[in-house]
Write a protein that binds this DNA or RNA. Structure first.
Lengths: 202, 202
DNA sequence: GATTAATCGGACGCAGTGTCCGATACCCCA
DNA sequence: TGGGGTATCGGACACTGCGTCCGATTAATC
């Protein structure tokens, strides 16, 4: 299986470059990490990078896919331990925020790139849409569960998930740009509080 | 007052270019509107643009300031006609979304640029912060009023305003990228509903 | 030791930004 | 009517980054 061995080698190389790229994106506050720098930092020639990634977008896509995998992992770990719907929601929110705190600059890059290359045929756009779908699906699960157990009022779970997803998106966008964000737990608690309790007198 | 006349002329020219830039940013889905294009479309030489704006960021800043003015205007018009706190909140949210619908591409540009030039000394960052402050101040007013009249439960108005601001930010970001957004009123109603009512059983 | 594949490194074209400067057209005033 | 000041033009320039290409070099394999 020569071809398989070659593929493994190829994947390994790709991973190597993606790791460096992720690190650089993390260190640097702005998107101006050039392909030159990534190559140099990875210890390869710039032209070699283009052997493994046809262009900058594809490299960013690979970084995104890696983040997606890590995100799923992190959330799966903390999933369904707490059976209280509000607790589940809080755990979920906290998990998302935590991931941002781990690598805010990369998240900024993802959002920026997504915005720049919004083309629906763009692979980056699709990848981000996939992540969004994952998040929404999990939220729908939490909400449906909450409605069944009576903690949440009757509503369209999809719309509610959309609403929460937007709050998460906004919060993450802002947090990723915040040099000194509020503590993780306090933020998650507060958000959960407002989401569940609403503004109105109870 | 020769100098004043000169300044008026200068302002007029600047406005002329800003108008063209705003229009181009509106028409084009991505940020790739070059200084060349803006100049050509405005019927001036590229070098002339640089007479009135020292660089691209300053031009974008001028566009932002114009948007800020329009935003204030639009919101002031619809302000305090409706005395019901929930109605005020809804009016406010609707006003913000409406402005996005009028010029989604420009909002995308603003966010993208803000992200790229996040430098705190950056004039663009400061301008966006100013807009954010305006929004927050108005929200604090709505919330405080709601708490006084008993419609809203007791809470920290600043934190609540922050929460709503994040929801708005997320919603506007996504809406600005959405080629076929949901109707304005339905979106505003739904957001208001979730914000006020919360998820929990009442 | 020869073949093959991966890598290097540098040159190239392209596009965009921002700078600079000489040429030109225009307006106002003498 | 002519001259001086000013705005504008337009194009050349340097610089940066992306993506392509290709010959040279290294290294692994048979």
């Amino acid at each position: 299986m020569v071809s398989t061995l070659k593929e493994i080698l190829r994947d390994y190389r790709r991973e190597q470059i993606v790791d460096v790229a992720r690190r650089l994106f993390e260190e640097r506050r702005s998107t101006d990490v050039s392909m030159d720098e990534i190559a140099t930092e990875a210890g390869v020639a710039r032209s070699t990078v283009y052997v493994y990634f046809s262009n900058r977008d594809e490299l960013i896509l690979a970084c995104l896919q890696r983040m997606h995998a890590l995100l799923n992992e992190a959330i799966a770990v903390a999933w369904s331990r707490d059976l209280d719907p509000v607790g589940r929601l809080r755990t979920f929110i906290r998990g998302m925020l935590e991931r941002i705190d781990e690598n805010p600059a990369f998240f900024r890059l993802a959002v920026t790139t997504a915005r720049a290359a919004h083309d629906p045929t763009s692979a980056i756009g699709s990848q981000l849409a996939l992540i969004g779908l994952d998040v929404t699906a999990l939220l729908v699960d939490v909400i449906t569960h909450g409605m069944e157990t009576g903690g949440f009022r009757p509503m369209d779970p999809d719309r509610a998930a959309n609403f929460i997803g937007i709050q998460l998106y906004g919060s993450m966008s802002i947090r990723a740009d915040d040099p000194a964000p509020l503590p993780l737990d306090a933020t998650a608690d507060e958000m959960c509080d407002f989401l569940v309790g609403g503004l109105a007198t109870r």
